[in-house]
């Protein structure tokens, strides 16, 4: 019983990290309509930024977080302005943009590997990794509680932002109908700028939490991206709340799945879910019908 409860808690923690990745990814996808696969490398780059600033250079932790999130946001914007926008301007198809974004991911993955080596890195912020025992045989570290809290707060803020602010409403307008949005005078390039800024800032948050929770490795970007993407596809890729919920479903499926399967199958569960959803329910469980799948 406690094993099951612990698995559910672990599922929630894994899910909230996936959800942070997926939320940013899905925000970018819904406003830009192409797959920004390099989002995964934003997360990893943020993780290494924490390692560099905090562990190596000894910058105070909160300053490190602030700088990391800021730089992540700018990193995303740079990818949009320097690669995607020029490609779009020369009329490249979405598939070309996707291939370019895989190229970006591979490029930075290898740059990180050259800069930091291929070995795993530990942040070593020991204060947060103290375990706390809860009734029912569940153990969580301080960090894991923080992860749950922070992701919860961010999701609420993101929702409020999308619903209540003018910028958020414009983003949803562009995501629903780009032509109509531009007719009513919404500058979609500006909206794309902001979606990359905000989406990549979320990747920065995810990167910080991942860096603290797991060991860092240059190759983890692909895996994180697939997980975030899978979560987004399960929930509905063009609908941010859907992709957040989908990510929790994925986190649960992985952690409950390895109760019956060998633990190595964690990734296989995710990959299979991704493949099955793409084949049979490409708009996800909550995604809007008018996804671009039929076009």
């Amino acid at each position: 019983m406690s094993l099951l409860a612990q698995s559910i808690i672990n599922g929630l923690i894994t899910g909230s990290i996936y959800a942070l990745v997926a939320a940013g990814y899905s925000l970018i996808y819904s406003t830009n309509n192409f797959m920004h696969f390099a989002h995964g490398i934003s997360v990893v780059a943020a993780g290494y930024m924490v390692y560099w600033l905090f562990t190596l250079a000894g910058t105070p932790f909160y300053a490190t977080c602030l700088i990391t999130i800021l730089l992540s946001a700018l990193f995303g914007l740079a990818m949009y302005r320097l690669i995607y926008l020029p490609l779009q301007r020369r009329g490249s198809s979405n598939v070309i943009l996707l291939i370019a974004s895989i190229g970006i991911l591979i490029f930075f993955q290898n740059i990180i590997q050259i800069a930091f080596g291929s070995g795993v890195k530990l942040i070593g912020y020991i204060e947060v990794s103290r375990g706390i025992a809860f009734p029912g045989g569940i153990t969580m570290t301080v960090l894991q509680i923080v992860i749950l809290l922070i992701s919860g707060i961010i999701f609420i803020m993101l929702y409020q932002f999308m619903q209540k602010t003018k910028l958020g409403r414009n983003m949803r307008a562009v995501s629903n109908n780009k032509e109509l949005a531009s007719i009513v005078g919404i500058d979609h390039i500006r909206i794309s700028d902001f979606s990359f800024l905000i989406g990549s800032a979320l990747a920065g948050v995810a990167g910080i939490l991942v860096a603290l929770e797991q060991n860092l490795s240059p190759l983890m970007g692909t895996n994180l991206m697939i997980k975030g993407f899978t979560g987004a596809v399960i929930g509905g890729i063009n609908y941010v709340p859907g992709s957040i919920i989908g990510s929790f479903v994925l986190g649960m499926a992985e952690n409950l799945g390895i109760l019956v399967l060998p633990s190595g199958y964690k990734d296989a569960i995710a990959f299979s879910l991704l493949f099955l959803f793409l084949l049979f329910k490409p708009n996800g469980i909550l995604g809007k019908k008018e996804g671009r799948f039929d076009k």
Partner: peptide, 13 residues
């Protein structure tokens, strides 16, 4: 049944 970037992602998947 899939087209465009969904097909791309499914084959990648």
């Amino acid at each position: 049944r899939l087209r465009g970037d969904y097909l791309a992602m499914a084959t990648l998947g």
